[in-house]
């Protein structure tokens, strides 16, 4: 369990890591929207090259990006299979008993699979190159206009960052408790579902007790350092746009333009759905 790291931040010194987290979040959202406009293989080629060059720039191993796809692989395959039998007209390519597969459906399925995969890989790159702290910081700043309508942006961000900060600590704690109970002969891997659920009690109770204890200690520590919420609070780390941030925006705009151009000009060459 100790081998599990939460989030999936991949520590490295790269241009992508150093980008402003706000920008990274916004660009990732824009990337997701762009992916929905991609409807042919040529454009996916552009997306592929774009993503590949980003991965190369970020010095994150490609293996790590591909790992992000694995959990949703079943969803992708399931949707793909459904989609494969969906098309009801066009050119038949394969026929067996009552199953007919059309050329168009085949293309659509391939596009769908590519789209889902690229949809996951973009945000994966974001979380791989941005620390959870930077992410919450970025989200807080992006949401800060909501302060006008009295939305507790700072408090929300604080809750988020504390939660993120405590996940590894609680994981380690859980690991310790599991080991302690295991060494007292506890068995978590056998028995029916009720037995297994009951076996969790000796883990969950100590875990809750310790979580509350830690929460209380943290509250006291914050109180003793005069923490009183977001009002009038200044920041140690100021987010500033740098030249690389502008270059990133530029690069992204070129990417989007390519996608748009392909969509406008090459629609007739490659099947559209």
């Amino acid at each position: 369990m100790r081998e599990m790291t939460f989030g999936q931040y991949y520590p490295a010194e790269s241009v992508i890591h150093k980008l402003d987290p706000r920008l990274k979040i916004v660009l990732t959202l824009a990337y997701i929207v762009t992916i929905f406009f991609v409807n042919n293989f040529l454009a996916f080629g552009v997306v592929f090259i774009f993503l590949l060059s980003l991965v190369f720039l970020s010095s994150v191993p490609i293996r790590m990006i591909l790992k992000a796809v694995r959990p949703i692989m079943y969803i992708i395959i399931f949707t793909a299979i459904l989609n494969l039998f969906w098309g009801v007209d066009g050119t038949r390519v394969w026929n067996w008993w009552f199953i007919t597969i059309y050329r168009e459906a085949l293309f659509n399925t391939a596009l769908l699979m590519l789209r889902l995969m690229f949809l996951v890989m973009g945000p994966a790159l974001l979380t791989l190159t941005t620390t959870p702290m930077d992410l919450t910081d970025g989200i807080e700043r992006l949401l800060s206009p909501l302060k006008v309508v009295r939305f507790p942006v700072h408090e929300l961000a604080l809750v988020m960052s504390i939660a993120l900060r405590f996940i590894p600590i609680l994981m380690e704690e859980t690991d310790k408790i599991i080991k302690a109970q295991k060494s007292r002969g506890a068995n978590f891997d056998s028995g029916n579902i009720f037995k297994r659920a009951a076996a969790l009690i000796p883990i969950l109770i100590p875990l809750f007790v310790s979580a509350f204890r830690r929460a209380e200690e943290l509250a006291l520590a914050m109180d003793s350092r005069c923490y009183k919420g977001g009002k009038g609070r200044t920041r140690m780390k100021l987010l500033k746009f740098s030249l690389t941030d502008f270059l990133a925006v530029l690069g992204f705009i070129i990417f989007v333009l390519c996608i748009v151009a392909i969509r406008v000009h090459f629609m007739h060459i490659i099947p559209v759905h």
């Binding site: 310790k176 109970q181 009690i201 100590p206 310790s210």
Partner: peptide, 25 residues
Amino acid sequence: MVFQYPEYQLFDATVLGDVSFGPKN
């Protein structure tokens, strides 16, 4: 095995229940 700060693994409602956990298992 007695871990560091073993008191953090106590969970049962009673002392007797907690001590019995090992032998029960």
